[in-house]
Simulated scan of single mutants.
Amino acid sequence: LLRIASDEFDDALADLLECGRRQSAREVESPIVTPWRSAAADCYVALGSAERAVPLATEELRLARVWGTPRAVGRALRALGVSLGGRYGLELAEEAVELLRGAAEPLPELVPALLSLGQALQNAGQSQRAREVLREATEWAERTGAVRLHLVAREALRDCGARPQRARHTGATALTSSERRIAQLAAAGHSNGEIAGLLHLAVRTVETHLTHCYRKLGIRRRADLAVALGDTG
């Protein structure tokens, strides 16, 4: 996952396919245990080989429907929709979002599903709906502390011609949940590399968020983070 977050798709794909071989050797098929097929499908799509992604995503969806959990089925629907694209891909993305929205509690797969649906709607020329879905993705990513996906959602909004909301305040209360999470880890003594590993982010993403934190908090040094954050716990 860290390799995917760092856009190292070739290496990530090799790791995932090896994981799949080992799981098959142990006769482990459940997509709940290790959803390697959908992750590998995403890598193939990113590398421009969507035709190789389709069989993996199709098989994961088949297995996910056997197990029947919204998380597994929603993840597989999203992966297959991205792999196929077009009208059918849009329908699968809609189904994934509807299923994940209806879960008893928020699932981490909802934000990726919303992002995929937003992109599919934009590709279909439905820009207004795309912006609405991507705004929802941005809000959920911030609410759940999904730092990398929050950045992806904001960039997707810009690509749709929308202007993501900017922070209106300064000080600790102006930090997003993603920024606060990173700032707290940095204040606790973790290096940027350690934070990236803990949150499955690229180091550059951590650096960008810390820069935003420094500006909002009115500080210049990492050593000042603990004091600047202290008044809000």
Rank of each mutant, 00 (worst) to 15 (best):
G193Y: 01
L185P: 00
A103H: 01
S83M: 09
A39N: 11
L80A: 07
V227K: 13
V206A: 06
A40H: 08
G189H: 05
P55M: 03
W36S: 07
R78H: 07
S116W: 04
V97M: 07
L110C: 11
A72W: 00
L63R: 15
W140I: 03
E95K: 14
L110F: 04
I182T: 01
R21V: 02
S49C: 03
V73G: 09
G218D: 02
L114T: 01
A137I: 09
T69H: 13
A103M: 02
A223L: 10
T208E: 13
R180A: 12
R181S: 11
R154Q: 14
I195N: 10
V111H: 04
L99G: 03
W36D: 05
Q184E: 15
A41S: 13
W36Y: 14
L134V: 08
G197W: 06
L175Q: 03
G193R: 09
R52L: 15
S6W: 01
L2A: 12
V152G: 02
G125P: 04
A79L: 05
F9T: 08
C43N: 09
A137H: 10
E94Y: 12
T69F: 12
G86M: 02
L47C: 05
V133H: 01
P31S: 09
A228F: 09
V54M: 00
R101S: 01
T232Y: 10
F9G: 00
K216P: 06
A188Y: 01
V206D: 03
A113G: 07
L149G: 02
A25R: 14
L175T: 01
E132L: 15
V73L: 10
V133F: 01
A196Y: 00
R37L: 02
D15N: 11
G68Q: 04
V66K: 06
G20S: 11
A50N: 08
E60T: 11
L115C: 06
P108K: 06
T69L: 13
R148C: 06
L199V: 11
R181M: 13
R180K: 11
A79Q: 08
A96T: 07
L149C: 00
R148I: 01
P70K: 05
A46T: 03
R62M: 10
L115T: 00
I195Q: 08
I4D: 11
W67L: 00
T211F: 12
E155R: 15
G48D: 12
V152L: 14
E155M: 12
A79K: 03
Q184K: 13
A50I: 03
R220S: 12
A72N: 03
A113W: 05
G145E: 07
A188S: 15
A187R: 07
A120S: 14
A64S: 12
A146D: 07
N123F: 12
L17A: 03
T34R: 11
